[in-house]
Simulated assay, not measured.
Amino acid sequence: MQRLTLRWWLAVACALLALGASAAHAALFEDDEARRAILEMRQRIDQLQQGSQRSGDDSAQLRRSLLDLQAQIESLRGDLADLRGQNEKLRRDVTDLQQRQKDVAKSVDDRLRKFEPETVQVDGREFKAEPAEKNDYEAALAVFRTGKFADAATAFQGFVGKYPQSGYLPSARFWLGNAQYATRAYQAAIDNFKALLASAPDHARAPEAALSIANCQVELKDTKGARKTLEDLIRVYPQSEAATAAKERLSRLK
């Protein structure tokens, strides 16, 4: 629109100049008003040309500004893409860290469980036992079951000394006494069986322990002591299988 207006004014100016020139040539510039009109028209044309030049400069500046703005937008897009990539990496890192924390926590829990007491049942009794305590008892019993009685006696003796307050203690003394009996350590066996009866007379192994004391006394040629032990067994534990066996033994003692 601006270019169209400028061309129109230029055309008009040229026509007026031509007209003015013709009139001036004919009248020898005697018409002052015509000269003033021409001067005004020339000033107007100069102003239009200057405005057109300024408009062109403004357009160029605007184009440069737009190009700069576009470059900044592209740069921001690149920065945004980088930030998105960093954010995704951070999200993955956080996920990995959380998983490692869970793994560490599980590992710690598993290790703690290895040291936490657990409920066990042995010979009709239920009690709490440390994992190491349970392992030592079961290891000693496993040796006894292989028939290595001397090694079993050593293992159970070590258990009794290491865990004097253990819930396994009556059972450990029972098996220790049997291992000692098997190795002919009769008096040591009697001492352990008596210790069982003194500390846990209601233990499931107590009647058997009493019968084993009598057997050890027989091996030691202590017939009188064996008879007394068997009679006490029948009296204290009359419903036990050991009491039935004790009656048979009494009938054979002389």
Rank of each mutant, 00 (worst) to 15 (best):
A182S: 06
K134A: 13
L28T: 04
Q101V: 13
E130N: 04
Y168T: 02
G51D: 12
S240Q: 07
I73R: 04
G51C: 06
R36D: 14
L220W: 08
E88R: 13
V143D: 10
E88Q: 08
W175N: 07
E118I: 14
A185Y: 02
L66P: 06
S55N: 05
S59A: 11
S171W: 02
A11R: 05
F193G: 00
A13K: 00
R3H: 10
R42I: 03
G124Y: 11
S107W: 05
S52R: 06
D123L: 14
I38K: 00
A132P: 01
A11G: 13
Q101I: 08
Q187T: 11
L220S: 11
L197F: 02
D93N: 12
S212C: 07
V160K: 02
T223D: 04
F144M: 11
K224D: 13
A152K: 09
L97G: 12
L10T: 04
A182C: 03
D79P: 00
L28P: 00
Q99C: 08
K89M: 03
F144L: 15
A15K: 12
V104H: 03
R3L: 10
G167Y: 11
L197W: 00
A15H: 00
F174V: 02
L90M: 15
N192P: 01
S107L: 04
A209Q: 03
Q239W: 10
L233H: 06
T223R: 05
D202W: 00
S59M: 06
M41R: 06
G161Y: 05
R205D: 09
K224P: 01
A81R: 14
L80F: 01
Q165N: 04
S22G: 10
Q61F: 11
A152D: 12
Q61S: 09
E118C: 09
R235N: 01
Q99F: 01
A13N: 01
G177L: 03
G85V: 04
Y181N: 07
A246H: 00
P238F: 06
V120H: 09
E126I: 15
R205S: 07
D103F: 13
L97K: 11
A34W: 04
D82M: 13
Q47S: 13
P238N: 07
